[in-house]
Computed example of a mutant assay.
Amino acid sequence: MPFLKYFPNKNVNSYIQFLKKGIRLMEKDTKRRIPLWGKICIGIILIILLIGCGGYAAFNYYYNQMNIESDEMVVDRQEEVFDVDENPGNLKEMDPESIQLDSASKAEKDSSVINILVCGEEAINDNRGRTDSIMIVTINQKDDRLSITSIMRDTYVKIPGFSDNKINAAYHNGGMKTLVATVKENFGIEVDGYVLVNFDSFQKIIDAIGGIDITLSEEEVRYLNSTNYISNRANHNLTVGKNHMNGNQALGYARVRYVNKDGNVGDFARTLRHRTVMAAIYDKMMKKSTLELVAMIPKILPMLTTNIKKPDIVSYLTAGVQVRDKNPKLRTLNVPVEGCYKITRVGRMSVVLASPLDENVKQMHKFIYGSALKDKKQDSSSAHITVGQ
């Protein structure tokens, strides 16, 4: 390579140090913080300059630090497991055979809307666990909107190739490929890729970005400081109001379901906390300098599992930055939506039935695709899912 002589060690770290030095020089004399779009432009320019001397090698190096899964990868099937709730309360038990879950005949997909399935895995004994959080992160380039759709883990769904179960069992049964197929089958959403992180990695990511700020109620503080949701007892020091949480504290907060949050209880409260944490991460990242963002790359990428290809990562990041620059507001939605669900028991497990499911799908599609749906001829059967009893 023609410029390799400028890097005495001739390795990836030399290129990254050069990139960081260039960013530092460009930021040094800037009187105000460079906006996010400016940071990205700076990074792109420097990477272009480095292409001839290893910049592409650096990009390849850090991309390959992630756990990359191909769509053709064969995933081992695991034995199906069904929850057994010891304290179901007064919930009426229903026969699984009495519930008929239909499928979407067609999945929505639009080139102007990017959907990434983001999940948090609760792994046990190094075996494939269940997904404690299931979210669709959307970059809607047509409407200039960033959004997060949370799917409650207790939602009772059809799992392709397996028995009907809670949606969090889909990953356990057949990996991310099965969960992606489950989202498509039940909700008519065809995602463009996925990102998976386990609990340990989640904590490390929060620590890598310097923690996040979360406001807590008195009830939340009392619960978190007195239970093992925060595994490290040294972190049982939360107070009412705004708290700067480390990774261990943030994970404990995100997993709480038995404490009310903004009028929500149970899994509704937990998924709301998931979205609160994601919004806090988003706010924290937006406040980082270019140098800080670059420095975090080698810390965070090795903790992620994804099937997103290299060209698509660049494309999705660019689209996200462009949308965020026009409209930084982060919108959120919980599925099942308000007023369209039933809490019941199927067999011996408590579940949430998205009922009527066709109304959930309609609202979900409207939230995610927005005006992109108006450009297509609407076919009610393409998004019609019913729950029969």
Rank of each mutant, 00 (worst) to 15 (best):
K5M: 04
K10L: 09
N11P: 02
N13P: 00
L19S: 04
K21V: 06
E27S: 14
E27C: 10
D29T: 13
R33Y: 10
W37C: 09
G38T: 07
I40V: 15
I42T: 13
I47G: 13
I48G: 08
Y56A: 12
A58L: 04
Y62E: 03
N67W: 01
I68F: 04
S70C: 01
D71R: 14
M73G: 03
V75K: 05
R77A: 14
Q78P: 00
D83K: 05
D83V: 07
P88S: 12
N90F: 10
S98I: 05
Q100W: 09
Q100H: 15
L101M: 14
D102W: 13
S103D: 14
S103Y: 11
A104K: 03
S105W: 00
S112D: 13
V113A: 05
N127D: 14
R130V: 11
M135W: 01
I139S: 10
K142H: 07
D143W: 08
D143V: 06
D144V: 02
L146I: 15
S147H: 05
I148T: 07
T149E: 08
T149L: 15
M152C: 12
M152W: 05
I159T: 09
N173P: 03
G175Q: 08
K177V: 11
T178D: 06
T178K: 12
V183M: 12
F187N: 03
I189H: 01
V191P: 04
G193T: 03
G193V: 03
Y194C: 03
L196P: 00
V197N: 00
Q203C: 11
Q203R: 12
I206M: 00
I209R: 04
I212V: 11
I214S: 03
L216F: 08
S217W: 01
E218T: 10
S226P: 01
T227I: 01
Y229V: 02
S231H: 09
N232G: 00
R233S: 12
N237K: 15
L238K: 07
N243K: 03
M245I: 03
N246E: 05
G247C: 05
N248F: 00
R257G: 08
Y258N: 15
V259R: 07
N260G: 00
N264G: 00
D267Q: 07
F268V: 07
F268M: 08
A269S: 13
R273N: 08
H274N: 13
T276Y: 05
V277M: 05
K284H: 10
T290K: 00
E292T: 15
L293F: 08
V294N: 13
I300D: 03
L304E: 02
T305K: 12
P311R: 06
P311V: 06
V314I: 13
T318C: 06
A319V: 00
V321S: 10
D325P: 01
N327M: 08
P328D: 05
K329T: 14
K329V: 15
K329W: 00
K329I: 12
T332W: 00
L333S: 03
N334Y: 00
V335I: 12
P336T: 07
P336V: 06
V337E: 04
T344S: 11
T344G: 01
M349V: 02
V352C: 09
L353S: 07
S355Q: 10
D358H: 15
Q363T: 10
M364C: 14
M364G: 14
H365Q: 13
H365Y: 02
A372L: 10
K374D: 13
D375A: 14
K377P: 02
K377C: 04
Q378M: 10
S380M: 13
S382C: 09
A383W: 03
Q389Y: 14
